[in-house]
Design a protein around this nucleic acid. Structure first.
Lengths: 160, 160
DNA sequence: GAAGAATTACTCGGATAGCCGGTGTCCGAGTCACCTGGG
DNA sequence: CCCAGGTGACTCGGACACCGGCTATCCGAGTAATTCTTC
């Protein structure tokens, strides 16, 4: 159960765009170069972020991607949902109703499967923590430990 | 990022074995039949549970699997770790150090990557919830809502 | 010199292969239970 | 009737194919900037 590589890339890209305080777009090529990532595949991930409403894409020459919301309004949960989807990792297939379960009265299945409930509860704790962390939070943490990051980002994307 | 099907199967199997209060082994064929699962593949998952120390296998005729610990001492975290492994879903590849990161001073990377920290914190919340739930807990919940489950399990595995 | 249209170059976007891990299956080694024969 | 040996059948365990999704790539549609021509 490994998470998609695209999640890590996406968070770092959003972080980079947050460091630029302007609204000028940044091309996929620039973003890929700044992290040494495959250009075309990164583009695919960015498209997912656009579909999820986290980024806005500007076509044409001098086009690229811009943040669609403020960094304070983008949570890690949003990013994970954009790349991995909104479905739960644990998918209950109701095997309790198969085999010997067929002999049980239907009333036994009125309540949700206890296994599914426990798994879902745990996963909700995970999502809760993800939803509590925003891109702005991470930017603040990184700034306090490595103040040069913002300057490097602006330089890498051709900002004066 | 979908969790292995084997996790659901394993929890239900452990639950079934918990309902039998004796130490007589149950064969893979019986377990598979009671949930309508593919025999050979279920056996593969059970082997993982044996390696993780959750089950004990008894070879030979009239052999099978028995719980290696009390249901109170088997957590959902143990089951997930046995099937999925103990590695974190989010794997930081330190892309912050690639590309433009190479121009940053080494001191900027003394602290752990803020993205990784946030992801790991969230995942720990998830694991914490999994570790807090035992097979005995789930059995108790199921018993309170569907008292016939234990009887059905004993019947399916040839108990008087 | 200014305006407008055609051209150009650059961008995103979706459609197209490759590869790894989960899914599913099979057969062999090993062990216990049972049966048989003898004492 | 009791016991020992051999046989048999059943079990787990690991080795072998199959498939879906993530990974990676390419090329085309579309747009903005640029350039050239004309007034």
């Amino acid at each position: 159960m490994r998470m998609n590589q695209g999640v890590e890339w996406s968070v770092h890209v959003l972080l980079s765009l947050a460091w630029l305080d302007d609204d000028e777009p940044v091309s996929t090529a620039s973003l890929a170069a700044s992290y040494e990532l495959p250009v075309a595949y990164l583009n695919k991930q960015l498209q997912a972020l656009v579909r999820a409403g986290l980024l806005r894409s500007l076509p044409g020459a001098r086009g690229g991607f811009v943040l669609a919301r403020r960094p304070e309004d983008i949570t890690l949960m949003d990013v994970v949902a954009a790349i991995e989807g909104r479905e739960f990792a644990f998918q209950c297939t109701e095997i309790r109703q198969h085999g010997m379960g067929q002999e049980a009265p239907q009333s036994a299945f009125r309540r949700k499967c206890a296994v599914d409930s426990a798994m879902q509860h745990a996963e909700l704790q995970w999502r809760k923590a993800l939803a509590a962390k925003t891109i702005a939070d991470i930017r603040a943490e990184a700034d306090s430990h490595a103040p040069s990051a913002a300057r490097l980002a602006r330089k890498a994307y051709g900002r004066a």
